[in-house]
C-alpha cells in the first residue's frame, strides 16, 4: 500500500498551542526577557547576560529566604503527612459519620487563602485574639507580631490547620480502596495492628501519598497569601519566604532584572525537587 505523506493533522494542534502560549509560554518568556536584560522603562533594554543570576545565587538575602523556605516546607510536611494519615486511620468507614467527617475535613480547604490569613491574624492577636489572649492568660509570653518563634509557630499552625485536610482526604481515599480481604488475610495470619499498617496500608497508600507529598511540597514551597496577610513576612524578615521576598524585590524595590532571575531559579528548584522525588518514589513501580 502506498502511503502519502500528509502533515495537515498538525493544524489540530494549533488551538492547544495558542492556549498554552497565552497561559504559559508568553508570560514565562517575558520573565526570561527581563532576567537577561536591564531596563529603565520606555521599553529600553540593555543586555546583561547572566549577571542577575550570579547576583541572586551569591546573595545572602536569597540564601536566607531559601533556607527559611526549605525549613518551613520540611516542618509542615513532617507534621501534615503523619497527622493526615493518623486522622484518616481514625475516620469512620461506614455510617452517618463518613459524610459528616468528610464535610468537616473539607471545610478548611474551601476557605480562600487571604481569608485564612486574616482569620488567623485576628485569632492570634495577643490582645484581642482568642488564641493570643488565651496563651497570654495561661502565662505564655506570646506575640506573633514581635517574636520570631511565635511568628513561625503561628504560621505553621495556620498551614497545618488549612492543609492537613488535603492529606487526610487523599489518605482516606487510599485506605478505602484497600480490599477488606487484605485485612482478613492479616487477621488469619495473626498480624498486629502495627504490622497491618506497615505491611498492608502504607504500601497500598504509596501512590496516593506520593501525590499528597508532591502537592503539599509545591503548595507550601510557593506559599504567599496566608503569611503575607498574617505576618507580612515579619517580624523583620523572619517569615519572608521565597515568594514574599520575591514580591518585595519585584514590586517593592522594582528590581525587575534580579526578580526575574530569582523567579526562574525558584521555578527550577520546584521542578527539580518534584522530578527527583517522583522518580525516586516511582522507580520500583516502573519495573513491573
Amino acid at each position: 500500500m502506498n502511503k502519502t505523506v500528509n502533515q495537515k493533522a498538525w493544524f489540530f494542534v494549533i488551538p492547544v498551542f495558542v492556549l498554552v502560549a497565552f497561559n504559559a509560554i508568553i508570560p514565562l518568556m517575558t520573565v526570561v526577557n527581563y532576567a537577561f536584560q536591564e531596563t529603565f522603562g520606555n521599553n529600553v533594554f540593555m543586555w546583561e547576560g547572566t549577571r542577575w543570576f550570579k547576583q541572586i545565587m551569591l546573595s545572602e538575602r536569597f540564601h536566607a529566604s531559601l533556607g527559611r523556605q526549605f525549613l518551613f516546607t520540611f516542618i509542615i510536611l513532617f507534621i501534615q503527612i503523619p497527622l493526615g494519615i493518623a486522622i484518616a486511620l481514625t475516620m469512620p468507614k461506614e455510617g452517618i459519620g463518613v459524610p459528616v467527617c468528610l464535610v468537616l475535613m473539607s471545610m478548611p480547604l474551601l476557605i480562600p487563602w487571604n481569608v485564612v490569613g486574616a482569620m488567623w491574624n485576628i485569632f492570634a492577636l495577643p490582645d484581642i485574639g482568642f488564641l493570643g489572649h488565651s496563651l497570654n492568660a495561661l502565662g505564655f509570653d506570646y506575640n506573633f507580631t514581635q517574636q520570631i518563634g511565635d511568628a513561625w509557630f503561628t504560621t505553621i499552625l495556620m498551614d497545618v490547620w488549612h492543609w492537613t485536610s488535603l492529606v487526610v482526604l487523599l489518605s482516606y481515599a487510599g485506605l478505602r480502596s484497600i480490599q477488606p480481604a487484605y485485612y482478613q488475610a492479616a487477621e488469619i495470619d495473626g498480624a498486629s495492628r502495627w504490622a497491618v499498617f506497615t505491611k498492608i496500608e502504607l504500601p497500598k497508600m504509596k501512590k496516593v501519598l506520593t501525590i499528597a507529598i508532591l502537592l503539599r511540597f509545591m503548595d507550601s514551597f510557593m506559599i504567599y497569601t496566608e503569611p503575607f496577610v498574617l505576618t507580612g513576612g515579619g517580624p523583620g524578615n523572619a517569615t519572608a519566604f521565597l515568594s514574599i521576598d520575591l514580591v518585595k524585590m519585584a514590586l517593592g524595590q522594582f528590581d525587575l532584572g534580579p526578580a526575574a532571575a530569582m523567579s526562574l531559579i525558584y521555578f527550577f528548584i520546584v521542578l527539580l525537587v518534584c522530578w527527583v522525588f517522583y522518580t525516586l518514589m516511582m522507580r520500583n513501580e516502573e519495573k513491573s
Binding site: Q179, A181, Y182, Q184, A185, E187, I188, D189, I200, P203
Partner: peptide, 18 residues
Amino acid sequence: VQKRNVSMVYQQFINYPN
C-alpha cells in the same frame, strides 16, 4: 480466627505487596 488453625484464599490475589 488467629486461635483457629485456618487459611483462606480469596478471589482477589491477596499477598503482602512489599
